[in-house]
């Protein structure tokens, strides 16, 4: 179902996932959905294709195992759930049942980052680190709610597994007018041009990075924002290009552990390719169990909110070359 684009308008990624899967079910008669009792987004699919929908109940490990079995038989299973459980409870099933035989299982879910105020059992903050370490796994983190449909579409053609991470996914701001940006799994998106510094983000922090860039523009700074929505495989060429074009000045902001996520992926590229950087700062979740609070409060408390992003970017711009 086409949506009319208004920048900054709020959309439910969950609704878009539901609609996209219901559409794709027509196109791909071997598309299945599997859920461990988190099937709210799958209602339309379930009603259209009841024989290709499985709710295993509270049994995340079985959900992934069942998906692997479906995939062995030539089907395309999408497992949908809450990522704290879907990334950690099942990590061995994902590794040995899905990644090892390199099956086209898609794992998509919500609650990536300190979102939803559920407390520490309900935040997926290590998930990208875990998933990036798995052989054959493609790892994405989506901020723009309209884009998730496109990612699901592209994932249908993949021969191996993919992990798709969202925040709460109930209401997020549209960022990219459909058709205006090249959205391709494996390629970073330059969400905003700029030449003084590159601000890298993924998922829910992309909108925040754009806001920070706007604020800094008022002080005459030209901030590039890169939505590195694919963490694995990482777009190393874009990282190298940004280093050249923005004076080797990088800031990374992410709703994930500051070590093990995107910042670490970028640092690996920088070291491996011998890229010269002038300054580098990473903002993300420290090694703490974060406790309760709204998404904004937790980001501010843990040092990766909007004001911290602006301040870090200013420091990196000011760093001596």
């Amino acid at each position: 179902m086409p949506v009319t684009f208004t920048f900054g308008e709020w959309f439910s990624a969950r609704t878009i996932i539901g609609q996209t899967l219901a559409d794709l079910g027509d196109e791909y008669p071997n598309l299945w959905t599997v859920t461990p009792d988190i099937g709210m987004t799958l209602v339309e699919f379930r009603e259209k294709f009841p024989d290709r929908f499985i709710d295993v109940g509270l049994a995340e490990q079985a959900a992934v195992g069942v998906a692997a079995g479906l995939a062995y038989e030539g089907n395309i299973p999408v497992v949908s759930g809450m990522l704290p459980f879907l990334s950690m409870r099942t990590v061995e099933q994902i590794r040995s049942d899905v990644c090892y035989p390199n099956l086209p299982v898609k794992i998509i879910g919500t609650h990536g980052g300190l979102v939803g105020n559920g407390g520490s059992t309900h935040y997926a903050v290590e998930d990208l680190s875990l998933m990036c370490s798995l052989t054959n796994m493609t790892v994405t983190s989506i901020g723009d709610p309209l884009m998730v449909g496109e990612i699901l579409r592209q994932s249908m053609k993949m021969t191996g597994p993919i992990y798709i991470r969202l925040g709460v996914g109930k209401s997020d701001q549209a960022i990219y007018e459909p058709g205006t940006h090249d959205i391709t799994i494996g390629k970073g998106i330059v969400a905003r041009e700029g030449s003084d510094v590159t601000l890298f983000a993924h998922g829910t922090t992309v909108a925040q990075a754009l806001e920070a860039a706007d604020a800094l523009e008022k002080d005459g700074h030209s901030v590039r924002v890169v939505d590195m929505f694919t963490l694995k495989p990482i777009d190393a060429d874009l990282i190298e290009k940004c280093a050249k074009e923005t004076g080797g000045r990088f800031v990374v902001v992410e709703d994930h552990l500051a070590y093990g996520g995107l910042a670490s992926r970028i640092a690996d590229v920088v070291v491996d390719r011998g890229i010269h950087l002038t300054a580098f700062e990473r903002l993300g979740i420290p090694q703490v169990f974060a406790g309760f609070g709204s998404d904004e409060e937790l980001r501010d408390k843990h040092g990766y909110g909007l004001s911290a992003t602006v301040a870090a970017t200013q420091r990196v711009i000011a760093a001596k070359g």
Binding site: G118, G119, S120, H122, F289, G291, F292, G293, S294, K301
Partner: peptide, 12 residues
């Protein structure tokens, strides 16, 4: 459910 509260959605 407030920031730094001992009381929230799941017990710690």
């Amino acid at each position: 459910g407030q920031l730094d509260s001992a009381f929230g959605m799941h017990p710690c």
